[in-house]
Simulated assay, not measured.
Amino acid sequence: MQQTDEYKYLGMWMSPLGCMKTKNEKISMKSQWVGRLGSAARMRASKYDVLQEVWKSVAVPSITYGAAVTKA
């Protein structure tokens, strides 16, 4: 059997040091989304409404899923 340093399981990169690769990928994705949200909010009349809807429809489900996966 061949041994590897890291592998992907249920969408998370696992290695002897933990899930740092997945954590760094998620942080990078979050930064990209914050930039996109800022751009969208600047283009709209009601910035608060745009950000609130995106938070409820994208961020909350992502955080909930991430918390459930990393807990297990």
Rank of each mutant, 00 (worst) to 15 (best):
G35N: 15
W33Y: 12
W55D: 06
G35W: 09
S39Q: 11
M43K: 15
T22G: 01
T4K: 04
A41S: 13
V54N: 10
M20L: 12
Q3E: 02
L37A: 11
K21R: 15
K56E: 13
M12E: 04
R36I: 12
A67Q: 10
P16A: 07
W33I: 07
W13N: 09
K47E: 14
V34H: 12
Q3S: 01
Q2D: 10
V50G: 01
V54I: 10
G38T: 04
R36V: 10
K71C: 06
K30E: 08
G18Y: 03
V60G: 00
S31V: 03
V50N: 02
V58G: 00
K71M: 07
K71Y: 08
L17A: 14
K30N: 09
D5M: 01
M43D: 14
A45D: 14
I63L: 12
Y7G: 01
A40L: 15
K30C: 11
R42K: 14
S28A: 15
A41Y: 07
L10Q: 01
G18D: 03
P16E: 14
S62N: 03
V34M: 12
W33K: 06
I63D: 02
T70S: 07
K30M: 12
M20A: 06
E25T: 02
M29F: 08
T64A: 08
T64D: 05
A68P: 00
W55V: 03
Q2P: 06
K30F: 15
Y48C: 03
K71E: 13
G18P: 00
K56V: 02
V50A: 03
A72E: 09
Y48G: 02
G66H: 07
S46V: 01
R42T: 08
L51I: 03
K23C: 13
V54A: 12
A45V: 04
I27V: 15
S39T: 10
S39R: 15
M29R: 14
M43V: 02
M12S: 09
S62L: 05
S31E: 14
M43W: 11
Q52M: 04
K8R: 07
E6R: 05
M14R: 00
A67N: 10
A59L: 13
S28H: 12
I63G: 00
W13K: 06
D49V: 01
V60R: 06
D49R: 07
P61Q: 08
Y9P: 00
Q2H: 01
Q32F: 13
C19I: 09
S62H: 02
P16G: 12
R44A: 15
G35D: 15
L37R: 13
T64E: 05
R44Q: 13
W13Y: 09
L17E: 13
A41N: 10
S31C: 08
L51S: 11
R44S: 15
T70Q: 06
Y48M: 05
A41E: 13
T22E: 10
L10W: 04
A45W: 10
A67H: 05
S15N: 02
Y9K: 01
